[in-house]
Design a protein around this nucleic acid. Structure first.
Lengths: 358, 358
DNA sequence: ATGTCGAGGTACTACGTATAACCGCCGTGA
DNA sequence: TCACGGCGGTTATACGTAGTACCTCGACAT
């Protein structure tokens, strides 16, 4: 074994990689074989290696700052464990939280998560599979990033969809927040306050989730006899676009006394529009959001909103992926949501008897 | 070569991994050797492989959906290229944007980025180096995640610090927004509006950046003769804490007519506090933030704030890392910032002659 | 005295890719 | 006709880790 490693003093060029120590280096230092090092460090040595040697191996590993090379480890059959998380734009707080949940769960199972922010931003979109999928065992993707998934099918990778219709494809697991329940809670809340004329500020995103929201909202209102949907406006996901859309909605007649928004950012825009039109929130107009972002508690008044379990969605996505990776049936997970009542909802004008929004 | 692969029909157990095709499979299909496949697909075949064969190799690769296994590739000497991005909490819009920038730049250079959200959230913090550093070539870390870096030094990995004092450690590159310039612009803006008594709502984070902000703010005000810092309150990074801290600051005497906040979230909290105390923003109190988050344009009034180039910081961090990886000196990058004047600043009360905030 | 057994460890090989080294074949010039 | 060079590939090997098969040696039972 004459391999000359980084130990040599005054190595010539400046670009000499500081070659990380390998298990062989640890073995040399501890006076054992490489195999023994592997056994000890993988905790498979019980009854195979004497405790004294085991300790000296660990000692040597510590002294050298040895870390096993995951690439090499993953090379061994089927050991590679990496999930690809495809989200539309990580710059969004919501998806950042989804990632956070997935990452935490992944850490517990000692698997990696690599992110692919799908196109939509500026610049050329890198091909997620050219660079990443090689080491990827499965994909967790938001339906909002669906266009990035075109090249996926032939890959044959296990797939978990977030915010996507359950049962569309047999092999695809889904993870969804129980948005139907959320919408029903919102409607119940608004009806209890006395609202009858409700508007919907919908996200102009062609996604099952958003279609589902609209459908459930319409159904819930229709089911309540007295209430009705008097306006539906579509908007992009920025405050500016939302403000414009909300102004359109508020010019409907009869004017809605409550605006259900598909997103907290939209709700913030709606509040802005209301103020601009001389309406007070919540006295003249109630507004509800979805997500419960930081923003929801920062605006004035604070938003009544449906808290979506973003972290849990990430975690559940990873769990689902592990499940199909383990050969089990692709399941559909439904996560509970929670209505957070804050200051942006109250009884409509001219209905003084109803309960307070808070 | 009798290796039985996934092609067999009706393989027994359900858990049979759908073994991704390897370069050898492509070679078999194309009727060439594995080496030839590698040559063709790595574009090193000019003059070594006939165009016809090259095409049939590509054809076979396409048919099989072949993707090279990066882990195996990286096994070959020094080929691994992965950066570890250590941030305090990805759930924060700012760091999500930093990651986005880093990821985009990384994609251009065909290197990977793996995230390590440093402890601070709930649950046990996974050891970043036990799971990740093995395959990591360098680290980009926010100074807000400094506590996660304790185990790093002995690793001997190249390090790039975001938001950290330049020149502290010789081998460490730094990337900073030019916050000094930002603070000077804020001060100039406020002074031009006629403010004299300024308060500082500081982030209670023990970080060089925040110390630097306080220092530059004090200096800028002191340099302007007539102005002075009348209150400094420290706050956590949530709206709730910021509101409480801002209320304390607004009880100082003389009461500040402008509140400079270290963060947009803090600024939102300050606005909330002002409203609660019967003060109008911006007529009675001007408020400025830092970051230019989505939130800044969502609150009412919209925040005058210093836009920090989050994406650029991520990109610059990656560039810096590549630079030291390439053997060059560790440099210090300073990124320009921009004052975004919106509705939360105006002339102070009793100074009617000054220019408008917008 | 010798066979047996288990503890304690080593040799070897697979994993998938990249590349250096090599090698046959065919056209060509002497 | 034959040596030769280069074209068009192949063979072999390294990379770092995990794990299996094997090997050795001492203790103990027979």
């Amino acid at each position: 074994m004459s391999r000359a490693r980084g130990a040599g003093p005054a190595d010539g060029g400046a670009n000499d990689r500081p070659n990380r120590p390998t298990s062989r280096d640890v073995a040399d230092r501890a006076g054992v074989s490489q195999a023994t090092v592997s056994l000890v460090l993988r905790d498979r040595w019980h009854g195979r290696v004497s405790p004294g040697r085991a300790e000296s191996v660990r000692e040597a590993a510590r002294a050298l700052g040895y870390r096993p090379n995951l690439a090499a480890r993953s090379l061994r059959l089927g050991q590679r464990r990496t999930a690809l998380l495809v989200v539309p734009a990580l710059t969004t707080e919501f998806f950042a939280r989804v990632h956070s949940g997935a990452a935490r769960m992944a850490a517990e199972h000692d698997i990696g998560v690599v992110l692919y922010p799908s196109p939509g931003g500026v610049g050329p979109a890198p091909d997620p599979f050219a660079s990443a999928s090689a080491t990827v065992d499965g994909v967790i993707a938001s339906s909002m990033a669906a266009e990035a998934l075109t090249g996926l099918r032939d890959g044959g990778l296990p797939l978990v969809m977030l915010d996507s219709e359950p049962g569309l494809a047999p092999a695809v697991a889904t993870v969804n927040p129980d948005i139907a329940d959320g919408m029903r809670q919102v409607c119940a809340h608004l009806l209890r306050l006395g609202h009858r004329d409700v508007g919907h500020l919908a996200a102009a995103v062609d996604t099952w989730t958003f279609h589902a929201r609209a459908r459930v909202l319409a159904e819930s209102l229709a089911g309540a006899g007295s209430a009705r949907l008097v306006a539906t406006e579509h908007s992009g996901l920025t405050v500016r676009e939302a403000t414009a859309a909300a102004e359109r909605a508020l010019r409907a007649s009869p004017r809605p006394t409550a605006l259900v928004c598909d997103d907290d950012v939209l709700a913030a825009g709606a509040c802005k529009a209301a103020r601009r039109m001389g309406l007070r929130v919540p006295q003249d107009l109630s507004v509800t959001g979805i997500d419960d972002l930081v923003l929801a508690a920062a605006v004035e008044p604070e938003l009544t909103t449906v808290r979506l379990p973003a972290e849990e969605m990430g975690a559940a996505g990873l769990t689902a992926l592990l499940s199909v990776l383990g050969g089990r049936e692709a399941g559909n997970t439904l996560l509970p949501v929670e209505l957070v009542c804050r200051g942006s909802t109250a009884a409509p004008p001219h209905v003084p008897g109803a309960a307070s929004g808070r």
